[in-house]
Design a protein around this nucleic acid. Structure first.
Lengths: 200, 200, 200, 200
DNA sequence: GCGTAAACGAGACGGTACGTCTAGTCTTGGG
DNA sequence: CCCAAGACTAGACGTACCGTCTCGTTTACGC
């Protein structure tokens, strides 16, 4: 029998500590950036022992992912699908403009950027990040495109997942690598061009 | 006048050391990844004093950028423009397929990913990265699209820079965040959809 | 109120590490001399992190002082006073000859010399060295001389502290600066001349 | 034939550089102490290349020895023998009081202390120091005692070299290890006791 | 209520790497 | 060929965090 890994008893977990750690991580990354985010720093700021972090999370990126997930869910509260007014272009422009605005706010940008950077070089984290944060968001586009296809607004042969990438990819690229500034006008241009490509 | 920073005399720089450092950095990142890339490790592998690295580069990301730039230039040697057979779709598919192949080779993927991750959280590095590596590559697409527009193959009102993003963004997104696997078929789908959007 | 210095919790200190560090320091200085005594070397030899040394000692001289104090106490174990056979000259010759022998053994000479050298240019260390090592030894002479004066063996007007210096100074001088070799005969001559000066 | 050691041509040596180096070493040690005396610092302060120091001196202690020798010779200018008024006690008190005064002046104390400390752990330097600085000074006492013995002022069986140590040792001991403050009164006491020991 | 076992705050521990400093050597260009 | 200047390899410095490991101290459940 292989050595059984020590598993802490989750039912006895201190909710107070969990929250304090998540908040501290978010605050710290927002103030000083990912480079200066340390486990010791989080523990000190949260008034928590280091072991309490190591007990429940495998890495500081995992802490940040949990912290960001909470924020992300707050931000998207109730919105479990994209708007569907029947006007696809208008709907997408609205959503993408909102996304641009969000990415331009420091409190959202800093932790998101930190997570993305970590995911770029850490496949395991990337998998988790996709499963819990990015995937659900992209699914919303897939659903909206599927509905639009059913309504005959976009071509039948279009792969809705690729269509999603066509929309999201350019924005993500500009955001992550800062090739050029990112604003509402850019979001509109992307929507227009992408839609021309997939329109019926 | 502010205190002038000590500037080393570049004319006395040891070319042998410079190359050894660049090679060591590339080898190290290829073998063990960015997390385990250390200045001490590079210095030891290159047979060089640490100070020689600190003298000429501000950070290990900067070393890697220099190292990668050399590789990148070797890879693109002579190819200062995209192919132009008159068939835009075929040309773009060829280029994007080649890009996909390149990004799937570890020797290229590892340092590129490391640099991208660093750039995501370091604006100064991002600026440099764009200026020296990414920018010139994107310019090739811009030129090709400009030629295609002049030839009447794509619509007059299309912003060639946005068109470039439409092509490159989806690929970069999948590569960086590993949302889904990236292969020739995906490259083809992206080209097809994007071209529909911008065709005349 | 000035910023209070972080004080480690002495009750949690690892006795094993403390001993290992002291032993390693003593061994190292005995083998390679003070010049090549490094904190890193001590830490490595003791199988200890550097921080554990920096946490408990302010300098490597302080480590050596602690290490030497232990040795010194072992050497003097039980001998909390000088012999008193009633024959002052014989007693002093015995003690000084023993001192000469001790100073000619490498295991004692090396660390003692290292400490003395450090004390010469570091007043704070000198103070500590005097308080903990040299002072108590000199006090033994002072006590013996005081007893001898009470017994009428030396003149009433003699300052016993100066008398001690008259005995110890010449030996220390020869030992530290190696002006001339130091042996039993020399010890005897010093005792004879010094005693003539202070005899009743 | 064994490899001949590189010997620089002393006839081409720059006197200007030699003086500048000696002055810089003395100034530096006087200002910041021996710990912070570095070859680089001396070179920079003297406006001299490091190699010029390494070419002519084997160690920084050797530089300091040369520098101090010059000062020492200036201080003792013309005084190639101790005063001899016929009153040995008075003569010695005068000389020792002067020595005490000198050792209490920083400009003399600092480099002398640095040299002594270096000599304590460096036998080669100690030999050189004794030959060039300390030896000649002690010889003056030996000569004075020899004269006194010839005049019948001290006992015939007294070893004048040991007598010298009896005088100088206590002072040196207090000075080097700072066991107790050193002043004129102390010098007088030492002379009185020592002389009683050696008087005819 | 009362043990008792696990989570907790705290922080010492063995380590690794940091970025800086100095040693001693080597190279270049000027006189 | 000495010299000023300073780049080079080498390696110690003292600091910051890592992840592990005790320490007592809560805390909450089963008896």
């Amino acid at each position: 029998m292989p050595a059984t890994a020590r598993k802490p008893d989750a039912s006895r977990r201190s909710e107070r500590s969990r929250r304090a750690i998540l908040d501290a991580a978010l605050d710290q990354v927002g103030e000083t950036g990912y480079e200066k985010l340390t486990i010791e720093g989080i523990a000190a700021r949260a008034g928590v022992g280091k072991q309490t972090i190591y007990r429940w999370w495998p890495s500081k990126a995992a802490v940040l992912l949990d912290a960001f997930t909470a924020v992300s869910e707050d931000a998207a509260q109730g919105q479990h699908e994209l708007p569907d007014t029947g006007d696809l272009e208008a709907d997408l422009k609205e959503v993408l403009r909102a996304t641009v605005d969000e990415l331009n706010r420091d409190v959202y940008d800093r932790p998101a950027r930190a997570l993305a950077a970590a995911a770029v070089t850490d496949p395991a984290l990337a998998e988790e990040f996709n499963r819990r944060v990015l995937g659900p968001q992209l699914d919303l586009y897939v659903e909206r495109f599927t509905a639009a296809r059913a309504a005959g607004h976009i071509a039948d042969d279009v792969d809705v997942r690729v269509a999603t990438d066509l929309l999201v990819g350019p924005l993500a690229h500009r955001w992550l690598l800062r090739t050029l500034p990112m604003d509402h006008a850019y979001a509109d241009r992307v929507v227009e061009l992408a839609l021309r490509g997939i329109a019926a």
